[in-house]
Computed example of a mutant assay.
Amino acid sequence: MQKREVPMMRVVQKGGLWVTLDNRRLAVYKMARHSGKCRDVKVNLVQLSDVEGELRKKSDSRVEGLSVTVRGTKRTVHADGRVTEGPQLSDGQLQHRADMGGHWTQEQLQAIGEGIRDFEAVVKQVLGPSAKLVRAGSFMKGTDIAGESDIDVMVFGAGPITEQQWNLIVSGIKSRGYVIDSVNPRCIHVTVNKCLVTIEFDVVANHRQGFPPNKEPENPFRNNREAARAVRNIKLDFQESGEKGFSGNDIEQAVLNGQKTLQQPGLGKLIDAAKAALKSERAQQLKRPRTAAHENDASAGTTDFNTPIGEGSFRKVYKGQYTQGIRAGQAKVSKVFKDGKEAYEDQFFDQGYSPSR
C-alpha cells in the first residue's frame, strides 16, 4: 500500500496546538517513521468550527496526544514511534521504577564514600589544604543508574594544575590500592570492584585549570525530582532496548526542555515528550546538509592520550573514537594544549600539525 492510497489525516488548530482527528492513522505513520518507511506526510487542514463536536468526542487523551492506545488491544504507540505491549505504567509506578533504578546499596554507598575521601586526601596532599573534591555529573544530580553510571567528582578551588601535579595525583591514587583504567589531561578513570558491581570514578579537572572559587557545578535537578525520575526512566528504557547514541546530558536537556513546554507534565507525559524530542532531533541531524564547520553532533568519545599521533606549535593531537551521537563508532581526534602554551594570535589558527606515521 502506498501513502497516497490512505486518506489524508485531518488536522485542526486548537489552543495554539495542531491536533488530528485521525489517531489511528497518526499511530500508523509514527510506526512507519520509526521503522524508516516514511518521513513526512501531507495532511488536510480543517476548520475547528466544522469538526468541533467530533473533536470533543475524540479528545480523551490524558497525555496530550504523546501516545496512542489502540482500542481493543494492549498496544500503545508512543510519540517516537515505539510500540509497547501491555498497560502503560502509571506515574506512581514510573516514580518507583526510577527510585529503584537509582538505589545504591548501603555497602556500595560506603565504598563510594571511601573512594571520594581517599581521592580528596590525595588532592589536598598535592594541591594544598584549600583544594577539595565535589560531586558532579549524574551522581550529583540524582539522575544516575546504580551500578551503571560513573561517579563523577571534580577537583574544585585549586586553580591551575600543572602536569607534574596531575601525575602526582595519579600516583597518589595508585598508592592507595586503586586500579586506574586510563588517564588524560582532564580525567582520571578509576575502577573499584566491590559489592558485586564495578564502581567507576571519574576524577575530573576542567582541562587541569580547576574551577574558580564559588562556582561549583550547577544542579538543575536538586529541587526537581520529577525531572530526575524522568531521566532515570529514559535511561532504563534505552538500556533495556539496547538503544545507543544519546548521552546523559542529551537526555537531561530533553527532559528539562519538556518541562518548560508541557502545560501539565506528569511523569509519563514528560518521559514521552523527552523521548520524542530526542528522536526528532536525531532525525533532523541526519537530514542536515554537511558543511565544513565542526557539526559532527557527537556527544562523547574515548581517546588514547598515551600516544600522540601528531603535534603543532601549541597543541598535541590524539586519536580516539566517538561512542555517542550519530557518529558513534567512527574515528575522532582530540587536540590538547601543551603545558604552558597560550595562544591569542591569528598565527595559532594558521599553523597546522605534522602527524607522525
Score class of each variant (00 low, 15 high):
236 L>S: 09
220 P>M: 12
293 A>I: 00
186 R>H: 15
291 T>A: 01
282 R>W: 15
239 Q>W: 05
138 S>D: 03
115 G>L: 11
201 F>C: 00
13 Q>A: 10
293 A>P: 00
161 I>G: 09
35 S>L: 15
179 V>F: 15
230 A>Y: 05
24 R>T: 11
338 K>I: 00
340 G>V: 00
100 M>Q: 14
206 N>V: 06
248 G>Q: 01
114 E>D: 08
224 N>E: 01
242 G>R: 08
78 H>M: 10
144 D>E: 09
290 R>Q: 11
247 S>C: 12
222 R>G: 00
35 S>R: 15
241 S>R: 13
266 G>A: 03
60 D>V: 07
261 T>K: 14
333 V>I: 10
241 S>A: 10
147 G>W: 03
148 E>P: 03
156 F>H: 13
168 L>P: 02
350 D>K: 15
37 K>W: 08
222 R>M: 03
316 K>H: 04
43 V>D: 05
334 S>I: 05
34 H>D: 06
17 L>D: 07
196 L>T: 07
29 Y>L: 09
19 V>A: 04
79 A>N: 11
25 R>F: 04
242 G>E: 05
317 V>Q: 15
206 N>D: 15
126 V>F: 14
186 R>E: 11
327 R>Q: 07
306 N>S: 12
20 T>W: 11
34 H>S: 09
193 N>S: 13
145 I>L: 15
49 S>R: 10
100 M>E: 14
160 P>F: 03
93 Q>M: 10
135 R>T: 08
189 H>P: 00
153 V>T: 09
184 N>A: 02
178 Y>A: 07
60 D>M: 08
157 G>I: 05
76 T>L: 08
172 G>S: 03
171 S>L: 04
6 V>H: 14
81 G>C: 00
176 R>C: 02
281 E>T: 08
